[in-house]
Structure formats: C-alpha cells, structure tokens
Design a protein around this nucleic acid. Structure first.
Lengths: 191, 191, 191, 191
DNA sequence: AATGAATGAGTTTTCATTCAT
DNA sequence: TATGAATGAAAACTCATTCAT
C-alpha cells in the first residue's frame, strides 16, 4: 500500500518522513517484485517525486544498502543483549530475514558486479563473534561451531530460499536444509 | 569470441549452426555479464541477426532454459552409466556447473516470477534417484542420504557460490559448505 | 519542415533515408534553436524514433560532427578544383558557412570540454594549403598571406558572427571585420 | 573554495556577503565548467541556499550579467583615468578578460536567444570613445582607428579564444590574431 | 530463412523553480 | 530572511520486439 498520498511541497520537514516512506516502499517492492523494480515505481509508491528519491539515494545500490542497513541495525540490537540466548535470537532473526527478503540475493549479485566489498560480511561476522561464545559456554551449540560456519550456513539457506519455486514451501525447504546441517547443532530451527 | 563471421543468407542449412552459435554465445555472456545481458549482444556475439535469435528462442527464458538443457543432457549422460561411481560423478559435475555458471541463479529467480514450474527439479531428481541407490549399495554414501537431500545440498552450494564476492574464493567457500554437510558423506568433494 | 511523416517499420532500406533526414533536421535545428536542442526534437522532426537516432549517432557530438562533416565535404569539393579561383571560392563558402551556422561555435565549445582534438583544424588547413599557392601565384592574394593566417581569420569572423545580437546585422559586421583584415588582402569579401 | 562556511539564518546583514559569495562562485564555475553549470552547484559553492540565489538573481542571465557587470566596473575605472595611456590599459585588460573568461561567449549566445539588447555593447563603446581620442592625439594608435573598429577587434579575439582547443596555446593564437590586425596599430599586444 | 534497422514504450537522470519551516 | 528539501517536467538513454527486404 502506498504511503498516504502526498501532494504539494511540504518543505524540508518532510525529509525524514519521505526517507522513511521510500525505505518502506523499497523494502516492500524489492520483496514483491524483485530488485529490478523501477525506481519510478518506488518513488510513486512512496508518494514522493523522482527527484526526492535521487536526493536521498543517488543509486539503486545506495537505496538497497540503506534497506539492508535497517536489517543490520535490528540484528545489532539483538546482539547487544549480553545474555546467553542472544546468539539463538540472532540466528533465528537472520533466518527470518533470509526467508522474507530473498530479493536481497539479487542485490548481492548485482553489488558483486558493481562494487568492491562493502564490508557487510565483516559486520555480520562481528555480531556472530560477539554472541556465539556465550552460547557455546552455555552449551547451547556444538562446541566446534565457528562464526565462519554460521555465516556459511546462512548463505546456504539463502541458496535454498532463492531456488524455491513454490513460495509456500520455502519454510519447509529451509527446515530441510537446517536438518542437513543439524549435526553442528545450529539452534534454534526456523519457527 | 564470436562464432566464425557469418554474412548473407545461407539458407536452412545454417539453422543448426546458428542455434549452436547462439547457445554458445549465450552461455558465455550469461556467465560473464549476467543473465540480463542484452539479447542484441548475444545475437551480435553469435554472429547472427536478432531475428534469428527470436526465431530460435522467442523469449529470454527459452534461451536460458535451452542453455540449461545442455547441462541436463550432460548430466543425463553421466547418470546413464550403470556403474556404482555414476552418482559421485554426477554430484561432482553438478558442483562444477554450479560454480561455473552461477548466473543461472538469476535465471531461476526470474523464472520463478515469470513461469509455472518447468519440472527441472523433477528431472534432476530423477537422475539422482537413478544413481544414488547404487552408490548407497556400494557403501559410497551415508545410507540415510536421500535424493531430496542431494538436491537440497546443491541448492545450498548455489547459495554459497552466488554470495561469494571474491571470485577466487568460490571454491574454498564451497569446500567449507561441503565440510558443514560432511556428516552425511556427500562425496566426492569439489576438486 | 519535418521530413514527410513516416510511420511503421519500413525496414533496413529506410536507413539511408533516415540518416539523411536526421542530418537535415539536426542542421536546421542546430541553426534555429542552438546546439542544445533536445535530441528527441531532432528525432521527431526527422520523422524517426529515438532509437534510430541513437543507432546512427550515439552521442550529440557524433551527430554534430556528422553535420560538420558534410560542410567539410563541400569544401573539399571546392578545393579539388585545380583552377586559380579555388581559394577564393573556398574562402567565400567558408564565410557563408560561418555566417549561416554559427551554432557550431557552441558545438566547438562543447567539444573542447568533451574531446581530444578531432583534427578538424588540420583538415581545413590542408584545403587551404592546397588552394592558396595557386591564388598567390595568380596574384589574387597578398603574397605574405599564410594558410595559418586564413584559418585565424576565419576564427575571427566566427567571433564576430557569434557575438552579433542583431541577426540582420551579421553580414555587415562580417564586412567590417574583413575590412579590418583587408591589408592582408583576403579576397573576396563576403557577398 | 566556498566562501567561509555559512550556517543558519544570519538576517539581512548577510545579504551583501551572500551576493558577493554567489558572484565569486559563479565567476569561477562559469569559467571552469561552462555557462551551463547547475545553479544548485553555484549555490552550494557559494555556501548559500538555493532560495537565496533566487532572491538575488531570478534567472541565470541575471546572474551572468551581474558577473559581467563587475568586469565592466573594472573597465570603467580604467577609462576614468584622464591620461593618454588609459586606452592602452583598457584594451589590454579587455584582452585579458576575453582570454580568461571565454565562458562568457556561451552566455552571450544564450542572451542573444533570450533577451532584447541589454546595451552592453553601447556601454563598452562609450568607454572606448572616452579614451581613444586621447591615445590618438598622443600618436599611440593609428589615426584611422575608430571605436567601432576596437569593438570589432575584441569580438574577433573572442572568436579566436573560443575556438582554440588547446588551452596553453590561447595566448599564442591571440598574438597571431593581433598580428593580422596590426596594420591598424592596435596597441599594446597581449602580454 | 536470415538480416539488421526501425520502433517506441519504459526507465533513468537532471535541474530549474517553489515553498514550508 | 535563509535554508535546503520537494516537486515534476523534461531530457537522455536502453532494449525487447517487429518487419521490409
């Protein structure tokens, strides 16, 4: 659904709201229609002019990374919890994101052609490294499980999500993938 | 490199050669420049007119599936071998294809949005089902390994390949993914 | 006036006619509305689609140079005449072109920012060098007049044309400029 | 470099400073990047908002003429000198301006399309008429040289400057042009 | 049957101008 | 009064598809 239709020049005060509306529209449209959805469609759905979209996000990748960034912020908030369950919640949320927003695989593919490393892998790695030791100490995961393993596992789940042709079977396919990885006791399984 | 330069209307005899040249050019360009490479580029590289490309392959997907089909044909030839090593060779070749032609993930993503199921999964499944029992009987794989597991594992490897930003680390990443799956003894590992 | 309105795909046979129509429209619109006239306007006036214009002339400069090239071709034809009057006719036509198509100054300014030397100066220099000696031998011009002088004089006339704000006074201004240069006996004066 | 960074609404007192900063930025950017440089760029470089630029200069031409006006003011100051050398200094400075700010040719071309005569020619003519007689009386210039000749000569130099593709050869080209005009004893030559 | 230019709709991109704060 | 974001009308550019020869 478009943000409430906006008309006329609402002045600079609208900037934050516009940015929000653009990000929401982009997240939704990337998911529904894929990464290549026209920028003009995103602007229209966000209820802003094309120029506003360009002011906020000069390239498609800038927009995509900004949406991605919000996911990261959420994961960082989870990882900031000092409890032993943080890793489990981080992994669970990461799986949900992977399932819900597989459109980002297309973005990654595109980014790979267009850009040098943006360091996103390292940021995610840091979150895992911050939380995994406590889970290990509490006996919640296989002691041999490394942070690299976790990231690799997430990428493997990505592969399953993106190649699943029937949307209603995505969760089931991910369950199957996690079962194949189960020996290393990645927990918890997807809800 | 374009197929040998072609000029003028060479009549029906050229049809097969043209089809061949288009498929070769498409395979190369999909890999090098991604699934969205302009069809006109493929026609040019193949040394044919755009009309010919349309005659042979009315849509981008028809072309992509035809390229994919050649991979299937190769896999089918491997699976036709009645020996106990057929499954291992099938898996090995499947991994190689996954590594070399990850551009097909983009195609699959596109196909998912555009088309009803084309049954490719089922064809691949049939090849695995034809070869896995003999490998299992010969003790070459974990007895609990199912054909579905194998297909799922291949999709997981896809995920790793497509998300690897550094081309020279793709094999290493796949090795890591296979190691995570090793408990089920998928053999052989990637070369 | 637009080339006779054309609709529908007339096939490759239309290519030469389209190129001609585009060049004519571009020459007219550059002169009437300046070098920055929208390419879409040129395409519309030529009676072709935008894509056709792009196929023939990938950039605005390519188009402008092609129009310019036609002027060169005309000058080359004049210079090919072995008679002693060739230089006079060359100079006269060059002045006419300068007066009629001052829009090309804008092009030159633009080209200077966008491109390395295209060698046009040298081509024009060659034409002058081919014809000037015969005129000199026939006593038609000051014996001290060099080909470089001629080119410089033409650039000076350019300056007068482009800075004349009243279109009806352009010829009069050029006459004045030629009078200032008269000691070197550039002949003939503009008609 | 932008004028000292300005933040916040500093009230009417800032108006003069803003005008100054805009003119400086415009002069520099017109020269460096051409007359078509985006107005937003000029505002940014001047350290002011776009609205302020519009308040001071409603159109691009208003801004361009204001920059030009400053040149006039400098020339007027030179012409106000009652000595016999005023004409020489006026001509010399005029040549320098022509060389340094050839971007103004683009402006003139644009103005010609957009505006009725602004009388700039007449203002410059007045300056020459005020100083030339004294130089003539002192025997510093050809007695036959008229003020119209001087203005025409300056426009001719414009033409040479704007058509010179190699920036380092501009002065040399101007020298050549002045040599062609030398019979009328325009002095002094460019430095 | 092959060629390759033409078409034109779709997308991206820019920027002069307006206007809420 | 200054700010700088919003607007939206152009303009530029791309490319899948058609079709005369």
């Amino acid at each position: 659904m478009p943000a409430t239709s906006r008309r006329g020049n609402r002045g600079p005060a609208a900037a934050a709201g516009n940015r929000r509306a653009i990000l929401d529209a982009a997240r939704r449209l990337f998911t529904e229609r894929g990464y290549r959805v026209p920028l003009s469609t995103i602007a229209r759905e966000a209820g802003v002019g094309q120029g506003v979209l360009y002011r906020h996000f000069p390239t498609r990748l800038d927009l995509a990374f900004a949406v991605f960034e919000e996911n990261f912020a959420e994961l960082e908030a989870i990882a900031a919890d000092p409890g032993e369950g943080a890793f489990g919640r981080l992994w669970s949320r990461l799986l949900e994101m992977t399932i819900a927003e597989s459109a980002f695989v297309e973005m990654v593919v595109d980014a790979r052609r267009a850009l040098p490393d943006r360091g996103d892998d390292r940021r995610l790695l840091a979150l895992v490294e911050a939380t995994l030791p406590r889970a290990r100490a509490a006996g919640l995961v296989d002691p041999a499980l490394t942070a690299d393993d976790v990231l690799l596992a997430q990428r493997m789940v990505y592969g399953v999500v993106v190649t699943e042709t029937d949307p209603v079977r995505v969760r089931q396919a991910v369950e199957g993938a996690l079962a194949l990885l189960k020996e290393r006791a990645l927990v918890p399984a997807v809800r």
